[in-house]
């Protein structure tokens, strides 16, 4: 079975991803020797409807290191490509540690986590 492909977003034009996390994840991807795609900014790919979005979803599973799964799902949609919820796993570099993100990206199995419903999350009691 083909291993999931990996897409890494560097969020080059904003400071919203902790720099130590995004650089740490990129460094560990480089150390691992795995094949991966790195893009300067996933938002830009979406706005420009870059063909890479389509190519990434055309063959098997996909792991994406970027930001919130809800944002990633609809960025792909805005770029003209529907992500398959059963074949997509998002590592959220805004909230995850380097270790958690890289474990998710490099482990061979896929843990799909794309949001599928519009239901609001219950508020935590204050």
């Amino acid at each position: 079975m083909t291993p999931p492909r990996i897409l890494y977003c560097h969020c080059q034009y904003a400071q919203v991803l902790p720099s130590e996390v995004k650089e740490g994840v990129l460094r560990k991807l480089c150390e691992s020797g795995v094949a991966f795609e790195a893009v300067a900014d996933l938002c830009e790919l979406s706005a420009r409807k870059d063909p890479l979005l389509k190519e990434l979803t055309s063959n098997g599973g996909l792991k994406i290191a970027a930001c919130y799964p809800r944002a990633v799902k609809w960025l792909f949609s805005a770029g003209g490509v529907a992500l398959d919820p059963s074949m997509t796993e998002i590592c959220n570099l805004r909230t995850e540690s380097i270790e958690t993100a890289i474990d998710g990206l490099l482990r061979p199995e896929l843990h799909p986590n794309l949001p599928t419903s519009a239901k609001a999350e219950p508020s935590s009691p204050s």
Binding site: H10, Q12, E23, L26, C30, A35, A38, E44
Partner: peptide, 13 residues
Amino acid sequence: IRSLLSKGVAVRR
């Protein structure tokens, strides 16, 4: 790769 990303390029490793 980091240098290329800073130039707005998409990189396939």
